[in-house]
């Protein structure tokens, strides 16, 4: 279960080893360095760009381009010239 493509970047110099990213990542992308207690990218290929780590890094050490990983939303957004539109039930509001 991996799409291999991602934009996840870890700025190791900013990392304090607080471990929030380890906790919020649903795909266990991060691991800990054995020596320093800092974090490292253990399985970057599993990243789904949800942005949980970036949102919860108080030190700005994690950067990732986030968005909906949904082709239907990207296509309808491109056709209507808007941001990607979620909504599988054909209504204006809603999501997948």
């Amino acid at each position: 279960m991996s799409y291999q493509t991602h934009t996840l970047k870890l700025e190791i110099a900013e990392c304090t080893g607080c471990g929030q990213c380890l906790e919020v990542c649903p795909h266990a992308v991060f691991g800990r360095e054995a020596q320093s207690k800092r974090v490292k990218l253990l399985h970057a290929e599993r990243c789904m760009e949800c942005g949980a780590c970036m949102r919860n890094c108080a030190f700005g050490a994690v950067q990732v381009e986030t968005g909906v990983g949904c082709a239907a939303a990207l296509i309808s957004g491109a056709l209507n010239g808007t941001a990607p539109q979620c909504g599988c039930s054909g209504k204006k509001t809603g999501c997948c």
């Binding site: 279960m1 991996s2 799409y3 291999q4 493509t5 991602h6 934009t7 649903p26 795909h27 599993r46 990243c47 789904m48 760009e49 381009e65 986030t66 968005g67 909906v68 990983g69 949904c70 082709a71 239907a72 939303a73 990207l74 296509i75 979620c86 599988c88 997948c96």
Partner: peptide, 20 residues
């Protein structure tokens, strides 16, 4: 299959753009 990307638990937006 392409449309199913939005229902999965693992597809990143940049991966889906590349697939498209």
């Amino acid at each position: 299959g392409l449309n199913f990307t939005g229902s999965t638990t693992y597809t990143p937006v940049n991966g889906v753009k590349r697939e498209m």
